[in-house]
Amino acid sequence: MQTPSISYKRHRFPPSIIAHAVWLYVRFNLSLREVEEMLLERGVDVSYETVRRWTAKFGPQIAKNLRRCQRRPGDIWHLDEVVVKISGKTFWLWRAVDQRGVVPDEILQFRRDKRAAKRLLRKLMKRAGSVPKRIITDKLRSYGAAKRELLSDLDHWSHKGLNNRAENSHLPFRKRERVMQGHRSPGGLQRFVSIHSAVRNYFSVPARRRAALTIRYHRMEALCAWKVAASIA
């Protein structure tokens, strides 16, 4: 599938440097100042604020391009939500993970209720273009209520011990959250987690590909996909 090209016009630095700075920030648990220092070691004198603006400007489109090239999600979805504090206010980050460990989508919401669960399911089905064979959740009753209204015949497994895949998917976000030292706004967090998950979907090595040579090839494929998505290939 052909991905929309990204224009880097009216920027002082070449597209390859801009894309590399964005990749460093979203791929690894680095702060903006650490990315600035790593670029300086390579002879690129750029401020951390410039890296932040590059990520905000180019990151969402790169993430969209990556998701366009991604395989369709599996037919078993693990759903879970995690609490997030933004300026003293409580929000919930709802996330889905398929049976391969890929995050199809995630959405930040104010509530932890049936309406929020329905919004998550609708967004997932719209992105996947299909209905899952099964959803697996914890004991939160909002999932069951949302499922009964949207997909009454859908197979639903509700058990705390079955949802470890979704709960483990929160760990990279929590590590990243500590480095970022909080979030400025709900919109900024939503944009960042969308970019972060899209990149992790490509660079995280599946359990079936653990041989050293296979891991190397997997990372090379992911780097190629990143360059195509960033329009620098």
Results as ranks from 00 to 15, higher is better:
126 K>L: 10
116 A>R: 04
172 P>Y: 04
20 H>V: 02
137 T>E: 07
62 I>S: 05
101 G>N: 07
20 H>Q: 11
4 P>C: 07
183 H>K: 03
5 S>H: 07
93 L>A: 01
122 R>I: 15
18 I>H: 00
83 V>E: 00
43 G>F: 01
232 I>D: 03
113 D>E: 09
27 R>G: 03
126 K>D: 11
28 F>L: 15
57 K>A: 11
146 A>N: 00
10 R>I: 03
65 N>D: 09
127 R>P: 01
172 P>Q: 02
86 I>Y: 05
73 P>W: 02
127 R>W: 06
141 R>C: 06
230 A>G: 08
86 I>K: 04
93 L>F: 08
8 Y>E: 09
131 V>H: 01
39 L>M: 13
132 P>D: 08
132 P>H: 05
61 Q>A: 14
223 L>P: 00
17 I>D: 03
51 V>Y: 03
30 L>N: 07
68 R>S: 12
62 I>W: 00
158 S>C: 07
208 R>W: 13
71 R>K: 14
36 E>M: 12
98 D>G: 03
7 S>F: 04
104 P>L: 03
102 V>R: 15
96 A>M: 07
50 T>S: 15
178 R>D: 04
180 M>E: 14
143 Y>K: 08
153 D>E: 14
54 W>T: 13
114 K>I: 02
152 S>I: 09
125 M>S: 11
59 G>M: 02
125 M>E: 15
49 E>H: 13
35 V>F: 10
202 Y>V: 01
125 M>I: 09
169 S>K: 07
103 V>G: 03
70 Q>L: 05
203 F>A: 02
91 F>S: 08
2 Q>S: 09
231 S>P: 08
102 V>P: 01
49 E>I: 10
39 L>N: 02
135 I>D: 09
106 E>N: 13
85 K>A: 06
231 S>E: 04
150 L>R: 01
12 R>C: 04
182 G>K: 05
206 P>L: 04
